Structures are given as structure tokens and as C-alpha cells.
Computed example of a mutant assay.
Amino acid sequence: MLQKNRKGALVDLVGIINRGSEVVLENNAANHLRRCAEALVSAASAYEGFGVVAASPQAERVLGAAMMLAPKMHGYSDGPSIVFDINYASGTLLARAARRLRDRGNASPLIGIVLNPLIDANTEIVVTELDCVHVESRRALLRQKDQCGVDRVAIFGRG
């Protein structure tokens, strides 16, 4: 289903919804969830001391994994905060989460971070309630090529 956006460009709404759903389903695999969590940790590291607030239930899952990878990451939302979501199509979820923070009295800087823009990523993303929106690649590498490590560990027990 093609629809025109505010600028008159055609947008494939069904395609956007399908791509967003695929990204969410990918996070059922531990390696994909870890990559998203690492991408969030990487992006949030530029905003030291900021709390991180999930804008959607899917973002909460990634945020939980990110907090395990980076124990200093916290979810306090009464000061400078990052509003995080996995997918970005129109910014509604980011705007609602930011509005909730503002309504609770948070007058500090609010930064948006998204991992997967479902629209043209070449244009700047602007969400009125946020000071800026940062798009971070969700395809962060698990480790450098020269580093060793284990991606998955299987534990077998007697049952």
C-alpha cells in the first residue's frame, strides 16, 4: 500500500511494517539481540551519565540486554535521558516516551537513539520533544576480527 508522506513522496506502509516486524523477530536469536544491545551501548557511551528509557516493549528487551553488557548503564529518567527504540518510522513512540518524561517534570536534555530507521535514513530525523535523534547501526560487530571469543555456549545437563 503506497501512501504519500508530508513531502509528497510515496511511502510503502506495508513494507515499513513488515521490515519493522522482521527486526523485532530477529531479536529472538541471541546473537541478534546481543548485536542490538552492543549497538545501544556504543551509542549511549557518547552520553555518559544519561539514563536510558525504552520507548517500546521491544526496546525494553534490548535495553535489558544492554544493561547486562554495561552495568553502569541505568534507567533513571529524572535527569538527562536517552529515549531509545529499535525501529523508527514516524517517531510516535519516541515522542510519547519523551512527552511522559516531560510531563513528569524532566526539563533536562532528552536524546533519541534508534537502531533501525524504516524510512529514508539520509534525511535528518526530528522529533519535537527531543533535542536530537541519533541513528546507530544495529549491525555492530560482536568483536573485532582479531579477537577470540565464543558466540554461543551450550550447556547440557542430566535431567
Rank of each mutant, 00 (worst) to 15 (best):
S90F: 02
A70R: 14
R104M: 09
G112Q: 02
K72A: 10
K145L: 10
V52S: 08
A59V: 01
D120A: 01
D103S: 02
Q58E: 15
V83T: 03
R6D: 08
Q58A: 15
L63I: 09
D12G: 08
L25Q: 13
R96Y: 05
V126R: 05
G64R: 14
R102E: 13
R102Y: 11
M67G: 11
F84I: 10
V62H: 04
R34M: 12
T92V: 06
I16L: 04
S42G: 02
E38H: 08
Q147E: 15
R6F: 05
T123S: 07
E48V: 07
R19P: 00
H32P: 00
A98N: 08
E48A: 13
A121F: 01
C132T: 14
S42Q: 09
F156G: 04
G15E: 11
H74N: 15
S81W: 02
E22H: 10
M1T: 10
N27T: 14
L130Y: 07
A43C: 02
E38K: 15
T123A: 10
G51Q: 12
S90T: 15
L142D: 08
G159I: 09
R158Y: 09
L13A: 09
N87S: 05
Q3G: 00
F84L: 10
A43I: 01
L25W: 11
E48W: 01
D120G: 00
F156V: 11
R6V: 05
G20N: 14
A9T: 07
H32R: 15
